[in-house]
Design a protein around this nucleic acid. Structure first.
Lengths: 157, 157
DNA sequence: ATCTGATTGCAAGTTTGTTTCGTCTGGATG
DNA sequence: CATCCAGACGAAACAAACTTGCAATCAGAT
């Protein structure tokens, strides 16, 4: 009973479908998981309310809208004082070209995924984000030659 | 005319909305961009056919479905012979826990984004993917402490 | 000036999503 | 052991959204 529990096997089956294609009609989902359309609809609504489903979005091919370059950047900071880390987070989040930003353990402090139109744009971005930030000690860039697999799908097993 | 060109400013405005919420009714989109609902619908359809829109999906909160750990892995291979690289790509793509996989230039050859339930699961994964693959020379793991910004949104400006 | 091809808005038709309502199940309580 | 209650279900009615056909419009080329 998915009332108190957050996920049962119906929910997982529904999520698996929606992670592939959220335009799938509820009736079709219902047939796939052996539930009526209203039941499917109620479960989706609850998962949205509880934050299991964070968003409904389209995935855009970056190359086809003028952003053919994807980059990874490892950023190392000078000081890990909380307020400086927070400031760094805010500055990264604010930049649309930064698709993803993670605060990590290891040899680096941040890992960024960046999408740009040209390397000149990236050069300008590094100036703004890294060279003008005194707390950035070092950064290392990887250029993606092949986006072998790109998605945010979470396995549900 | 968006016939031969792939993107005009209407398309970009529509995409910007859909990248945030693809459940937005076409009528509402139409009001926002000053177009009728059918016009919006035809443009969306064309962008889907031409591959500008790659997919319609829900984004799931990994922590809430039992995958609280996100990892980055830099993988360096022994040989960059094409067939070995392709084999590596296939092996990474086949694993559901590998959300993203990029073939990159720089000190590493691949960068993976991995989502798992426990570190034990990750340990098992490294065994399968890296230790049992003779072509993997070295790999380096970063553990995400904070998913500061996660998305696949492409800036449209 | 005219023609062509593409795009638009409107309106009708169709599909999909949503709400309502009565029923059923499982678990806790007396 | 019977009763009660909360939560979830399906069927049907309802509302909203999507889709299509058609005539009108606009831009560029002849």
């Amino acid at each position: 009973m998915p009332a108190s529990q957050s996920l049962d096997s119906f929910d997982r089956a529904i999520l698996a479908i929606l992670q592939k294609d959220n335009t799938t009609p509820q009736r079709v989902i219902g047939e796939a998981v052996n539930l009526s359309a209203p039941a499917v609809q109620r479960r989706i609504k609850r998962m949205e309310e509880t934050g299991i489903i964070r968003a409904n979005v389209v995935l855009v091919d970056p190359a086809k809208v003028g952003h053919p370059i994807t980059l990874f950047v490892e950023v190392e900071v000078e000081s890990e004082r909380a307020e400086l880390i927070d400031a760094a987070k805010r500055s990264f989040v604010a930049v649309p070209e930064v698709q993803q930003c993670y605060y990590v353990t290891g040899d680096a402090d941040f890992i960024l995924v960046v999408t740009v139109a040209t390397m000149a744009d990236y050069e300008a971005l590094t100036r703004r984000l890294f060279f003008e930030n005194n707390n950035v000690k070092r950064f290392r860039t990887f250029v993606a030659m092949d986006r072998v697999k790109v998605g945010l799908e979470v396995p549900l097993g």
